[in-house]
Each structure stands twice: as C-alpha cells, then as structure tokens.
C-alpha cells in the first residue's frame, strides 16, 4: 500500500446545494478538508457559512450534491441507507441541543447506542456505567434528562457518543446552550478525551474558549474554508 496512513475524514471539492423554498442555496462551494487520527479540530464561522452542512456531510447524515466525502477511506456517496446507518454507529455525535431521548434515564440514553449496535444487556449496563463515570455523572445515572442541568445533559450526550468506540467525535456547538462555567467543564472533558484517550474530535463552534484549546482551527465563510491555522 502506498498510503500508510488513511485520513479519518477527507473531503474533496465538496459542494451542497439545497432548496430553501424556491431559492437554491449553495451551502458548500468546494470544501477541501483532511482530518487525521488524533486530531482536535475546531470549525469556526458566522451562521450561514456552511459549518453545520459540512458537519452533516462528515457525519454521513446527508449526501453531497457534488464532490466526495471519505470516512476512513470509504466513499460515503457509494453507500446505501443501511450502510450509512452502519457507518453512523461508529461516529459519535454531540448536538447543541443535546438530543437525548427524554423518557430514558442518563444510563438508558448511553445504553441506547449500544442496543442499536446489538450489544447484550449486561455488557451495555457495565459500559454505560463506566462511561458515565468518565464524564463524572456516576451519581446521576438514573436521572432523566429533565432532571439534569444543561452541562450534565451535554456530558451524557458525550458519554453516549463515546459508547460505540467511534472513529471520531462530531460536536455541533456543544457549549452553545450551557453557561460558561459548565462549558468550561465540558471543554476540559473533551480536551482530556483527546489528550489521554486519543479520540479524534471535530467541533463546530463560536466559542473562543474552545478554539484556544484545539490543535487546529479552520475558518469558514460562504461555503468555503478561508483560513486554516495550527495552534
């Protein structure tokens, strides 16, 4: 093999056009991005710059209009619905609005991803407890999202995202909806995961606190990457 290391994520000339009513919107206009294993990348940009669209492409939630997304060398556009679902099981999503299932407890939410993967009950339970301990929520395991604070919810979401040993974590403004003090805790947690466990992390954010911690930052504007810097 010529390529000794395969990038975790690679996009080539990525374009996405969608219709907003009758007006076509060019959300991405040729994005070229490479993320290597162990990377800690922040994607910055004003709203409407195409950050979220890019994240959906990388997360195999949506397909590009043009160009290609490779995840560990696999061309996402060639996959069918079932294969995309399989791929998503190995991608850890963390959303701005947490997106936990309200009727499940913290532990239930973490277990759900493993249940989707088909793991057995006892294995799920054990791993969920470990993960909640990692994010510092061992004591809150049996609480439902409504009984948790924003920061706690986001940590549950992180534990959930980590459950299936993902290839990388995709975070969409993870601190956008929590106060700055708890945001700090979340950032510390994410940083530790990257440094200690070598988890590859891609964060879309406005938060200056985060960009100062990441290894790399890219700036987006009007569907293009306009600036890239290594911290």
């Amino acid at each position: 093999m010529m390529n000794v290391t395969i990038s975790v994520v690679e996009t080539i000339n990525l374009r996405k056009t969608y219709m907003l009513g009758k007006v076509p919107v060019n959300a991405l206009q040729g994005v070229k991005l490479k993320v290597e294993k162990g990377d800690f990348l922040a994607i910055l940009g004003p709203s409407g710059s195409g950050k979220s669209t890019l994240l959906n492409m990388i997360g195999a939630l949506d397909k590009p209009t043009e160009g290609k997304v490779f995840i560990e060398g696999v061309d996402v556009s060639t996959l069918n619905d079932n294969e995309l679902a399989d791929l998503r099981r190995r991608i850890g999503f963390v959303f701005q609005f947490f997106n936990l299932i309200p009727r499940l407890t913290a532990k239930g939410n973490v277990e759900l991803t493993m249940a989707i993967l088909g793991l057995g009950k006892s294995e799920r339970r054990k791993r969920a407890e470990e993960l909640l301990e990692t994010v510092g929520l061992k004591e809150r395991a049996n609480h439902k999202p409504a009984e948790l604070s924003g920061g706690e919810r986001q940590r549950v979401a992180i534990a959930r995202a980590l459950a299936n040993n993902p290839k990388f974590l995709l975070m969409d403004e993870p601190t956008g909806n929590i106060d700055s003090k708890t945001a700090n805790e979340v950032i510390e947690l994410v940083k530790r995961l990257n440094e200690e466990k070598g988890v590859t992390i891609i964060i879309v954010t406005h938060d200056q606190q985060i960009t100062s911690q990441t290894k790399r930052t890219v700036q987006m504007l009007d569907g293009l990457i306009i600036k890239e810097e290594v911290n």
Binding site: N99, T113, I116
Partner: peptide
Amino acid sequence: TREIGILKALGMKSRT
C-alpha cells in the same frame, strides 16, 4: 419526528 432523527443519527436502520 425529532426522536426518530436522533435514533437514525445514532445509526438505527430504517427497518428497525
């Protein structure tokens, strides 16, 4: 709808 979106983002197949 949102719950179904979450489940699908977590990798649940349409069949499931």
